[in-house]
Amino acid sequence: MRRKFITLLIGLILIAGCAKAGDSNAPASAEASAQTSGPVTVTDMKGRTITLSEPAERIVALTAADCEILYAIGAGDRLVGRGEYCDYPLEVLEVTSVESGAETNLEQIIALTPQILLLGTMAQSTEQLEPLESAGIQSVVSDAQDIEGVYTAIQLIGDLMGRQGESEDLISKMKSDFAAVSANAEANKGKTVYFEVSPLEYGLWTAGSGTFMNEIAEMLGLTNCFADVSGWAEISEEQVLDRNPDYIVTVGMYFGEGPKPDDEILGRPGWENLNAVRNGAVLNLSNNELSRPSYRLAEGAKLLNDFVMEHRAPE
């Protein structure tokens, strides 16, 4: 039971999010460039080749990140179905929701008659997806494991939708954002950050090496306290106190009961001597900026950078 819930939890953190996606500065430069037409051939992130006679007009996307990308390249209106946990931008909530992940329901998808099904990491075997093929629906896997992978995914989706121009723009915007934040890397050398994925009450979970959070910390010149841990892992509270991070980032959500996630960390008994707590350097990023393989990682990096700049000790 518990194992199942941990899997569920990690799944939720990766794909779910809260619906208060407020300040959307998504570069939805919709009609910027003319749509290309003609046959499309792409290679998806599992190395399979997909050929379309025309860019896709009807698409179902199961992961939240792919939905975000579709809207960002101005192809959101072609989304006829979305995974149940997709929540950004707000318009996506109006799209018909289908079950996703291990619960993926092919009937629901076939009923929406899309040309393309965009999947994340495949929870299904190729055989299980066969009914889609016979219904004339091609499945495309977009499975980014790092920022480079996100670029690939954006490019892939842009190609599929015939919006190469928009996807190029989106990628270069991300690159320039990342370049801007990494300009401070030298100044941040030696500073440590601790990412908290699940709060103390339920056992501390952090993001170690091989995660987007770790990659972005490195980009900013920060050292992830738990780089020795790989992926998402439950770690000992004693270790956090011992490793004494300079910054703490929590992706916890506020449930409307008790203190807010950042305040809760500031008030934990025994944590009062941590550098981060003493300097009030606790940041709450609760809109999945740092956990989804989406263009918004750049936003998250910017928010983290601003926060670090703000709390940098005067030299």
């Binding site: 569920l8 939890l9 339920y202 056992g203 959500m253």
Partner: peptide
């Protein structure tokens, strides 16, 4: 809307115990 909170609770642990 409470899915995450419930999931967290179900895997509740004795870490973070207080006086």
């Amino acid at each position: 809307d409470k899915v995450r909170q419930i999931a967290f609770w179900t895997m509740g642990s004795l870490s973070g115990s207080t006086y």
